[in-house]
Design a protein around this nucleic acid. Sequence first.
DNA 1: GTAGACCTCTAAAACGTTTTCGACGATGTT
DNA 2: AACATCGTCGAAAACGTTTTAGAGGTCTAC
Lengths: 342, 342
Amino acid sequence: MTTEPEAPANRTPTLTDVAKLAGVSVATASKAINGRGEVRATTRVRVLEAAELLSFAPNALARGLLSGRTGTVGLLTSDLEGRFSIPILMGAEDAFGAGQVSVFLCDARGDAIREKHHVRALLSRRVDGLIVVGSRTDPRPPLAGNLPVPVVYVYAPSANPNDISITVDNVGGGRLAIEHLLACGRRNIAHITGEAGFQAARDRAEGAAAALADAGLRMVGDRPYFGSWDESWGRAAAHMVVERHSEVDAIFCGSDQIARGVLDALRDLGRDVPGAISVIGFDNWEAISADSRPRLTSIDMNLKRLGVVAGQRLFEAIDGAVSSSEEFPGRLVMRESTLPLR
Amino acid sequence: MTTEPEAPANRTPTLTDVAKLAGVSVATASKAINGRGEVRATTRVRVLEAAELLSFAPNALARGLLSGRTGTVGLLTSDLEGRFSIPILMGAEDAFGAGQVSVFLCDARGDAIREKHHVRALLSRRVDGLIVVGSRTDPRPPLAGNLPVPVVYVYAPSANPNDISITVDNVGGGRLAIEHLLACGRRNIAHITGEAGFQAARDRAEGAAAALADAGLRMVGDRPYFGSWDESWGRAAAHMVVERHSEVDAIFCGSDQIARGVLDALRDLGRDVPGAISVIGFDNWEAISADSRPRLTSIDMNLKRLGVVAGQRLFEAIDGAVSSSEEFPGRLVMRESTLPLR
DNA sequence: GTAGACCTCTAAAACGTTTTCGACGATGTT
DNA sequence: AACATCGTCGAAAACGTTTTAGAGGTCTAC
């Protein structure tokens, strides 16, 4: 019978195994692997070779238990299926990079009980920090209890202004859309948007109104058309606007889905877009905006960037830095639905 | 000066603190909290009260270090923005429930190097198992190295048939679509689909062809129209089909986006849907299918269920059970684009 | 040749739990 | 009264790592 020379049973190899194989103590092995000084070059390579041979991976649990830092963060979302959470989540994942930090994902599904439960589980796993991402821009109640780790809120700000919240400047976004339409030479602009119960709808409308006022213009219909966020509302509202206000030459829509409905309705009505009427959407949801006829100009909220910044801020906060809330502007993505008048 | 009675400095409370406060040993405190026998009822409540008072949460690292089980799993995805990963991810998250298991999310972004890196990090964190979710149904190379934990592949199967893969029955899905059109009384059916390089496109086409053959019918144009997965291809192909084969009375589309393009083109051509031509899509992507004119009948792949099953199978595998690959059928979601002939 | 400085390494403690095993006292049995 | 039984509890080991304090050796300088 043959004895296997460096097979430590069938367990996953531990630092002790590496040390034994390299003929040193665990202390030395640890220092060699972590690049601490205090170890001769030749010894270091011997240890590293042993580690490689056993394909040793340090046990993060043991390390975390000792150091108090786990290199993990919790990401609490309220609706995974939501279009808004995903890019943010990607951004946050990016911020932590292929680096040292891993992300615990939890979907509370809008349920406060479930959220509390997830927070407990995450704290029990000793995460170094938490990112809370909401599904609407309305302020949300902060996490209960005074937590032992820093928290960053994204998209939906915390109702507590002392918390760190990373949000979208929807007022600025509305302004951006109107200013673009004005730059295209439009003067009779209507605003069709989603439910008035959403802060996002109200903010975008406020920005739009302000931009029009600055230009000395009235909004067609004198106020926004609030409704729902979907295509069918866009179609219905477009019919209404065109019928009542034949002078309309541009429509700012609160979402790309609404804009898509508007485009379809205008097509049915025989109105040329962008010749007779320009249309601009919001969200820059590629699946909707990039393949419509004509392709849809839209405001992109840079959600991924939001996620990245949230990750960075959390990181800094973990390292003891104090930072405050930030609001990020949107970005105009120009396509053919708003070609300028010649 | 007042001394604070039960404030253990400012650390997060440990079991020792609880034990001290309750006037017992850590061993007893542990047993009381975990419901092990061996402890008197009155003692148990004293310990539980102490734990509650300190809002003690057991350190999962220490527990995992000792038991070898961490109650965490890694979820490796290749494209977070993809529509397919998200429902699966949700399902998996669901399967682990508000229960004991937390999910580490990693996006490899289709990069093998990054994937390897993530696997290392996850193993270092001593996950109990891995779920690998792909973005297309083509088989993917299995994770390299013989891993110390079970792995379940979802959506994209592993190229190694010995691995556990949970996939969609796309052949059956194609069959389902055609059988529905036949049941609606259609006989001249065309198939417009995505890139032939995708296994999904080929499988769905195969199922469609088989169902037509079973009914003794030919596919309009004699073969599928392969193209791309987007609306503009749907529009172009619809024009082509209608022009060349005026007898066509139904179109099976390989995706809802293609179907959406087909609907728009038929509308332009003045063909009534579903009166003259029925249209059925694939994916049941609500944002596309639920608000079109008419609303789109589609095949739903039950992706969330796929995720749930993957989570369950992984769980069982962790507990030592052996299971094999499974393929799940799709489900017909009927809307107005395929009303039966009267 | 001796004292100190310096380099390399090791033993041991620590992190917070769970589990095993033995101790102790009370109770029941003969 | 002696003994076995039972229920309750605590001491200590274990998990795998990092860090501290110190031991031992070699080298330089006087």
